[in-house]
Nucleic acid binder design. Sequence first.
DNA 1: GCGGCGTACTGAACCGGTTCAGATACTAGG
DNA 2: CCTAGTATCTGAACCGGTTCAGTACGCCGC
Lengths: 342, 342
Amino acid sequence: MLAMAKETIAGLAKRLGISKASVSYALNGQPGVSEVTRRRVLDLAEELDWYPSSSARALSRSRAGAVGMVLSADPLLIGTEPYYMGLLAGIESALAEGDMALMLRMVGKDPLQEHAIYERWSGERKVDGVLLFDHLHDDPRPALLERLGLPFVLHSAPESARPTSFSGTTTDHDSDSARIVDHLHATGHRSIAHVSGPHSFVHEEERIRGVRERADGYGMTVVQYEGSYALEAGHDAIALLLRAASAPPISAVVLGNDLMSMGALLALRELGLRCPEDVAIVSWDDSLHCQLASPSVTALSRNTVLQGRVAAELLLLLLDSGTLQTRSMPSSELVVRASTGG
Amino acid sequence: MLAMAKETIAGLAKRLGISKASVSYALNGQPGVSEVTRRRVLDLAEELDWYPSSSARALSRSRAGAVGMVLSADPLLIGTEPYYMGLLAGIESALAEGDMALMLRMVGKDPLQEHAIYERWSGERKVDGVLLFDHLHDDPRPALLERLGLPFVLHSAPESARPTSFSGTTTDHDSDSARIVDHLHATGHRSIAHVSGPHSFVHEEERIRGVRERADGYGMTVVQYEGSYALEAGHDAIALLLRAASAPPISAVVLGNDLMSMGALLALRELGLRCPEDVAIVSWDDSLHCQLASPSVTALSRNTVLQGRVAAELLLLLLDSGTLQTRSMPSSELVVRASTGG
DNA sequence: GCGGCGTACTGAACCGGTTCAGATACTAGG
DNA sequence: CCTAGTATCTGAACCGGTTCAGTACGCCGC
């Protein structure tokens, strides 16, 4: 058992008295072998529980059998954001079905590091494609990947900002925005604030526009504030927005993610304001935090697992058939909770 | 730019008028080339920004250049547990430094699935080693991996339960337990409950023993309860434990993770009990949840990033020098918050 | 002048698969 | 019966690196 020589395809061939080529054809379901031979090969492989070497395969097929994903965000934020774990789970499940591995890298916010990783991956031919998240305004990454010849899928790219030809998912931010604003309007709010994430994200631009347009339609006033997704940002935004006396006074705040919403709740508590009586809160991202907070927070619930899954599926499709395709994500649901009087 | 032929080591060699072998030696910092030649090679590689093909390397070196990790847990739990993200971040940073890739798989709780993945990885020689987390009582995985010839590192394996020869990290559960019980004793509690995670985890056995022994030393009574790490488990445990009249009545509950602690808080609220006045709560795992809850929850804070990092470092060490080694994790800190009157 | 040695370098084998261009046998058509 | 065509199978080249054995050369001591 110790010095068990690793079987190779040549070994199998010798045992069966046939050529390497036949074994290979048999294993890969390709024509060129009789059914009888194919069965013999597959049976023997099963019996020896032998698998073809992935690196040999990768070399001869010129295909790495893996796709890459770079999580570039504040490491601290990554840990607290359940968002990424959901994505990962979805991606993983799709990739596993397609017999692809996931190559994961985590780096800080420095874009140069991320670019360097892509260059390296491409040079070493270590991944066959890349998953791109958090699409930026004037994002340099699609062009870079195109130059490197690395296929990619862009997650949640709005129609307006997409590169000429690409595969990707789209999210209907207008409908999401409408869902939130409609709810606030229906519950009597006429002056709201919107604490978004960084404007550098394309999806934030879309949300900002979406909220403003919908609110305009109702004749509501909207104050915009740019946050960072960090808890403190939500906290500080509230402090700032509510201190600045506006007429009519802000009675509801929409925050770009769950962390900022938690920060907002803390700030309200400090200011001695009640939620939802004095100020209502809506989070653009649902999570356990929203459920557990007191009051529990009304939140737009996206199915992150599904999003990851679809993005990965698009990449697989692109990789083995070259098909560029766009898929729109199912629209999110607004889970109404206590923070808006639900 | 389009049909840019991929450079190969043969191409470099031809350009420089030397042999493939020399190029290879130069690139890998091996003896056999003059300094002049080495520089010429490195400069050219840089200029063309060329990297050796990872799959070719993997094949000829018989080394995959990757390590594997299977997250086998309730997918729902994985998403909400910041624990795993922290581990991942630590692992990733160590692996990146050692030029190793992380191969991540997520599967449900079914152990057979996990075993199948290891078999496959080993057969395909897709990973050079494996990181093992959540050590189980009578864990079959070390033996399996040994049989497969896959090096591995066992995270947080207590002295008592470790296989004969292995690399791994150890956690001093006795000192952790003492830290918690000491704090409860000091704040006046004499009758406590301990809602652990599943007994199948070795670390839970250790914690249970640790808590009991330390409490015994103080003459405190401890009621043990086996939870599942899910929020509901914490909730139900509280309901059950406090309903069962005991003498003296339980005045503090230690819960095995942050989710169960949140469940406990919910249950207390439902029962109309105040925390910490009526019942104090301690969580064995810190997270944002503990910080944000009201009351905020006293928690044992482990540095999960560091834990991941150390585990990965041990695996790297094992892989490229064959050294088996054990490293003990720094002991955790108890962060005292409102739930114990802090 | 000769044997011995260290350095710089090279050709060829090798890692373990895939795949192409035949070779062989067997079947069907005329 | 001969030929064309098809199904089955094989040898060898190939993917792009690493590495071993061996060559050539300069330098040393004696």
